[in-house]
Design a protein around this nucleic acid. Sequence first.
DNA 1: ACCTGAACACCGTTCAAGT
DNA 2: ACCTGAACACCGTTCAAGT
Lengths: 229, 229
Amino acid sequence: MSVTQPVRPPRRRAPRNSLNPDRILDAALTLLDRDGAEAFTMRGLAQQLGVGTMAVYSHFRGKDEISDAVAQRLLDTIELPPGGSEDPESELREVCVGVYRLFTEHPSALELLAGRPLRGDDAIALIDRMLGLLRRAGLGRADAAHAHVALMQYTVGSALWNTRRARALCQEGARERVRARIAALPSDTYPSLVALAPELLCQKSEGTGQFEYGLDGLLRGLLGGTPQV
Amino acid sequence: MSVTQPVRPPRRRAPRNSLNPDRILDAALTLLDRDGAEAFTMRGLAQQLGVGTMAVYSHFRGKDEISDAVAQRLLDTIELPPGGSEDPESELREVCVGVYRLFTEHPSALELLAGRPLRGDDAIALIDRMLGLLRRAGLGRADAAHAHVALMQYTVGSALWNTRRARALCQEGARERVRARIAALPSDTYPSLVALAPELLCQKSEGTGQFEYGLDGLLRGLLGGTPQV
DNA sequence: ACCTGAACACCGTTCAAGT
DNA sequence: ACCTGAACACCGTTCAAGT
């Protein structure tokens, strides 16, 4: 009576050579952007590709190697200003904005790039360019090295802060809850915070405007006191 | 012959009430500092406490609740300057250094605090204090709000950057490998980077010195152009 | 060579049970 | 009430096997 038919033959064997590193990285980036790095899974990646879990291992050594490759690919996509302008400060500003954009458009890029050694040519070129601009802006050798790190730290920190904040505030009613909590604070123990609540909760205080406010301050402070004389 | 003795009776039943939230949080912080947030495990925590995995669940709802509680406890430990000084800029500086110290002494604090809503009194008090100092330093309402966020972003970003960098460089021979890689770069394609290699690899460029360099620059830029007139 | 499922050693957490 | 192990649904990865 009962024919020996497999109970769950859910997926036909994938056609040969339908998989390749590029297709895998495309799918990985899609999932990373959509669900975040902590939800990125080898099993989920394979499912997205319509393939058995282990098929991916024929093209990459493992999850770390895929993460590295996605990180390198993301570094390519930074949009940098043309270069060769006569104003190193504003060119520097645009480079930082480009890096910030990468991290806010691809929040998982932070997790992917933060721990790793940055061994891509694009990363090297970016560092070299920033250092050159800082020297042209008049900084000494040690100052240029310090300033470059400070700019990267601020840029990375802003992206991290804003993506986390955006993720927290996009919950339903989260914004109103924060507002209510601040309104409920005793204004005699926390006078400044209560007084500045409108400014802190202002929409303008999020995103690129806030980032550029601090970036301009940092550039002013690092590049010396005479802005446009 | 064979007595019915359990094969693996590895742990006696823990004495009643030997476990409590404080002991759990102590152990959690120890493990978090020693092995990092990604290696922090409910099973490992229970083992550290000498207790079955599920015993912890009698005191906390789950892993997230423990992480939240550790984060709150860490916020308490920030060492803040006495306050009431006549120089708001240097007091602000010390507050930022205190926050930076917390994050570098407890690298996992970043992971713990980054995502969460910051619903502790200590966090509120910290924000209020920074805002008050920025107002006293002469900033307007909107500027104070923006400057506060910029300072926090820079501080968090610096801590993240430096702890990751420190972790990467503490591998055996990592420092020499980075040095060799930079030395091998063609100095005509990456002239600035190659030229500044000594400064970039300098020991001084790590840790608190680097952080304070950027912090001073940021404060200078944010608080206006007339430093000590 | 490329792709497969089964299996292994993990993870957080639910559950029914012991004391 | 507090603590227990077994079990469930995950995870990355190893392995032997199919084509």
